[in-house]
């Protein structure tokens, strides 16, 4: 049937139209080097500043560099890279998400975390509380979060990297101060019972708490809490530092499979190393992340960080692999908590 052939031809033609149309799309110009940094939610301001510095540093060498950024929840960003988002470097909230990319795509070697200093984390952070000005509910430490009538705002640990650190910090407190795993699990369950909203990302939670006026206390990244004071008003909120928290190490790495295909390994590697440079470390401290090399940062920036007893994921939870499996995997402790809380 010639008409059928004509019809299929037309169908193919319209696809061709679609493809032709997309060719006109905004593509990175060929003349300049560009690479894609896929990062998590709260680092938007940080990387905007770092990228600017990096571009300034490389300009004398005659290179025009275009750093493309993508931000979102850490888990959702890892998912996008697994599904083919062409990231040259990933800078995520926790090692488990990068492990997942390595395991599922083989585009990152499994020992990636040993490739850069400090477990591949150019900065660290921790989890603190943000409360409303004057601390009307008198929240001083983790114990206060389980009091009846207290509303705790945290993102969903299943989707948000920050929320996993929140959860683990609370769990660590439970183990240390309440006597063991069983007690810790019950303690964390009580905290989540007091959570009226579980946003999918850290930023969503900050907005819920700060902008929408929901809840009495926000469990947040330290950098996120400081930024909220800056952006949303130091007259509205204050930071409460708990007695125990966790040392959060947001790691960075090359996506080898992608940089080798695109020929961007050198520049991407230079970018990651730049994160450890004194210039970048100063920017990092300025944006309220704890720099790996505090000496490089302005002393008044470093002085802002409170002294907290920090437990580490490796010592306390046996590393991310173990923590992920025990707490956050399907049927893990967190699932059990959700089920018991319903």
């Amino acid at each position: 049937m010639p008409a059928a052939i004509k019809a299929i031809g037309l169908g193919v033609a319209s696809l061709a139209f679609m493809i032709a149309g997309t060719m006109l799309g905004p593509r990175p110009a060929v003349a300049q080097t560009s690479f894609l940094n896929v990062s998590y939610d709260p680092t938007r301001e940080l990387y905007r500043a770092i990228n600017q510095k990096f571009e300034e540093e490389t300009r004398p060498q005659g290179k025009k560099i275009n750093i493309r950024m993508s931000h979102g929840g850490s888990g959702s960003q890892a998912r996008a890279v697994i599904d083919g988002l062409d990231a040259d470097v990933v800078t995520l909230a926790l090692a488990a998400d990068i492990d997942e990319i390595a395991r599922r795509t083989n585009r990152i070697p499994s020992d990636w975390q040993k490739r850069l200093p400090n477990n591949s984390a150019p900065y660290t952070s921790t989890i603190v509380f943000l409360v409303r000005k004057g601390n009307p509910k008198g929240i001083r430490d983790w114990d206060d979060l389980i009091k009846p009538g207290i509303q705790v705002i945290t993102p969903n640990p299943k989707t948000s990297g920050g929320a996993r650190w929140n959860y683990l910090a609370a769990y660590a407190y439970g183990v240390e101060r309440r006597g063991g795993d069983q007690q810790a699990q019950a303690f964390v369950a009580q905290i989540f019972k007091n959570a009226p909203v579980l946003d999918t990302g850290a930023r969503g939670s900050t907005n819920t708490f700060a902008r929408r006026g929901i809840g009495d206390v926000l469990l947040a990244w330290e950098n996120e809490a400081f930024l909220a004071l800056d952006e949303l008003g130091a007259d509205k909120f204050e930071i409460v530092v708990p007695s125990i928290s966790i040392l959060a190490e947001p790691p960075v790495t090359l996506v080898d499979g992608n940089v080798d295909r695109k020929g961007t390994r050198a520049i991407a590697q230079a970018y990651l190393e730049f994160l450890y440079s004194p210039t970048a470390q100063a920017v990092i401290a300025k944006h309220y992340y704890r720099p790996m090399k505090p000496d490089a940062a302005a002393p008044q920036d470093v002085a802002r960080f409170p002294d907290i007893k920090l437990v580490t994921i490796d010592q306390f939870f046996g590393g991310w692999d173990e923590a992920q499996r025990k707490h956050f995997a399907d049927g893990g402790i967190f699932d059990a908590i959700l089920k018991s809380n319903r």
């Binding site: 905004p26 990175p28 894609l36 939610d41 938007r44 301001e45 493309r68 950024m69 993508s70 931000h71 979102g72 996008a80 988002l85 990302g201 930023r203 969503g204 900050t206 907005n207 902008r211 909220a228 952006e231 949303l232």
Partner: peptide
């Protein structure tokens, strides 16, 4: 979308991004 700034963000996605950057 992949949320690449200036590249694969449509207007509705950009609304969400700005919202998440405290840029109400």
């Amino acid at each position: 979308s992949g949320h690449i700034r200036g590249e694969t963000n449509t207007m509705p996605l950009h609304v969400e991004i700005l919202y998440n950057e405290y840029n109400f």
